[in-house]
Design a protein around this nucleic acid. Structure first.
Lengths: 145, 145
DNA sequence: TCCATTACTTATCATTTGATAACAAAATAA
DNA sequence: TTATTTTGTTATCAAATGATAAGTAATGGA
């Protein structure tokens, strides 16, 4: 196995992943939500509670810009902030009920398209896919966990 | 294999892929190139020659905006356009020598970080990774090819 | 107590990106 | 030939995003 060749395979693969994730999410349409705001909501949904600093780090945006987007999401009642009782500088960000509802709909929509994508997969195919995902997670994308 | 469970695994996986590709490309710094322009160059590099319409489709941007960015890249002598002799409406876009040089440097930089990522992988690991990439390409991300 | 650091906010400005209308030129179909 | 479609450009405006300075409040250490 040539490592250079593996790199080419890797590049083609990640391109395909980006393409497919774009297709899966493209018909998720939340009223008046910008792409960046959607990514933030998605992150909160999966990892809540999170602090603005964590969002800032994970989404690769400055804390001031994160703060601005969070304020907009809060104004739209999609998220709420809870101040840590231990360290009152820290804010824990969570989805509100409205936010949860919207994100569950979004995920359901993505899931629906995902199920279409794998509709022709056999039982063994599904096992192979799951196994392959695990291998790559373990050896490339999440080597520590 | 529960299809719902596979979806969760899939979501976590694609998130990790996006995260890692961001890390691999983040220290590719080309002077005065915007992210969109970089994505266009990357696409041209891999798929040249391409037409503006193809770029527009693949990068999910309107043709006018594609045209604008291509003009900027052309002004910087990173790409060139060749008019199709058969159908003179069509323009084939290619990298110039300067463009090739810059993109090869960029890819070398990404490759370097990729090699770090898999530096501890054994021969068998590499084979497993390659196999897993193939499986996923075949059954999920590139079902037609 | 005083000072430095951390977590976050507000405000402002520049740049990038997206959307749309109007146009030109070439190809194709009627 | 004339109309229609395709391919691409230019121009303009609005919105989203990025960068940075300045400020508040809480914490923790000297």
């Amino acid at each position: 196995m040539d490592k250079k060749e593996l790199f080419n395979q890797f590049v083609a693969f990640t391109t395909a992943v980006h393409q497919v994730t774009h297709e899966l999410t493209q018909n998720v349409k939340i009223e008046n939500i910008t792409p960046v705001q959607y990514k933030i909501l998605e992150y909160i949904k999966v990892s809540q509670p999170v602090t603005p600093t964590e969002i800032s780090d994970c989404q690769h945006m400055s804390l001031p810009n994160t703060s601005r987007e969070l304020r907009k999401l809060q104004e739209r009642k999609l998220i709420k902030k809870i101040i840590d009782t231990e360290d009152r500088r820290k804010h824990y960000v969570c989805l509100t009920e409205d936010g949860e509802k919207i994100m569950e709909e979004a995920f359901a929509c993505i899931d629906e398209r995902f199920q279409q994508l794998i509709q022709h997969a056999s039982k063994k195919d599904l096992e192979d896919i799951s196994y392959a995902l695990n291998i790559l997670d373990e050896k490339v994308f999440n080597p520590n966990s």
